[in-house]
């Protein structure tokens, strides 16, 4: 008797937590999408009104496109920079541990700190980046005030913050490449770049795909960076989908509509990740 109950007692915290914080919210969010609700007054059934509104909401569409723009710049940039620095670090290097630790530092620091810092670096008149550009004889760049540049600026900042983690992942990947492949290539007189493109790159494909998946999921939750840096501006050019969902709920108290946006956006995320996984399973 006792033996039969014990396993269930051990897993019961998970089951209770799952029911309250996952199962119920998922079901409730579906119910909410058919209602109008500002939390204070009672819920009002509105049928498909939220869905109809969603498909006419150009700002929501823009926020999704903004998030995709962020991903399209951030992911390739991150892979190129991380791979490059990992490749350099993978040589016999003096103080290698120090360099690795330095690149990793922004990963552990709160995104709030990183964002406050980059707000200063990106300053139009007093920011370090523009001062360097002016010293070198270029014009100033409106890092955060030019609607065309603001989102790429955030993507650069996010790359700076996360790239250390991916350097470490690539270093692990690089160490799995058998040494004798390179030795054989050396005998054939291959250049460094030939070895990189013909041996290294194909061998670490799995790591690249892992990085793509991880940064896609992370990138879709873009929130605090535009929240602090730009508030979604200029001209909503950095309004990310999560920031828009947040604003609908906690600025305007459109709980039903916000839940609809959340559900719809989550389905987009799931389909992108599933497509990526399918693609990867075929490739690897």
């Amino acid at each position: 008797m006792k033996k039969k109950v014990v396993p269930y007692l051990l897993v019961s915290p998970y089951i209770i937590h799952f029911l309250i914080f996952i199962a119920f919210p998922v079901i409730f969010s579906i119910v909410l999408t058919f209602h109008k609700w500002n939390i204070i007054s009672p819920m009002e059934y509105t049928g498909f009104a939220n869905y109809i509104r969603l498909f006419q909401d150009t700002l929501f569409l823009k926020s999704i496109i903004n998030t995709l723009i962020f991903l399209v710049i951030h992911i390739p940039l991150q892979i190129i920079v991380a791979l490059f620095l990992a490749e350099v670090l993978n040589q016999k290097i003096f103080l290698r541990g120090f360099f690795r630790a330095a690149f990793f530092l922004p990963v552990v620091v709160s995104g709030v700190v990183v964002t406050i810092l980059w707000q200063q670096l990106y300053g139009f008149d007093t920011g370090l980046l523009n001062k360097i550009l002016v010293t070198l004889g270029f014009g100033k760049v409106g890092w955060l005030i030019d609607p065309k540049i603001a989102m790429p600026s955030i993507a650069i900042m996010a790359t700076w913050k996360n790239v250390g983690l991916y350097i470490v992942l690539f270093l692990v990947g690089l160490q799995t490449v058998p040494k004798h492949y390179y030795e054989a290539a050396d005998l054939e007189g291959a250049t460094h770049w030939q070895k990189f493109f013909k041996i290294t790159l194909p061998m670490i494909n799995p790591t690249i795909f892992l990085v793509v998946i991880l940064s896609t999921v992370g990138g879709f939750s873009l929130f605090i960076e535009p929240y602090i840096l730009t508030g979604g501006g200029p001209l909503n050019s950095t309004l990310s989908a999560v920031l828009y969902i947040y604003k609908q709920a906690f600025f305007y108290y459109h709980m039903g509509y916000s839940a609809t946006l959340g559900l719809f956006f989550a389905l987009i995320i799931l389909s992108v990740v599933i497509i990526q996984k399918k693609f990867i399973e075929r490739e690897v």
Partner: peptide, 27 residues
Amino acid sequence: GRNLIFYVIIFTMTLPFQITLIPQYII
């Protein structure tokens, strides 16, 4: 039910937090 619980856990890992954010606030 051991396997069922295991698959439920795996499934929840793929669930984006954007779905549960608003209902969790209401809870």
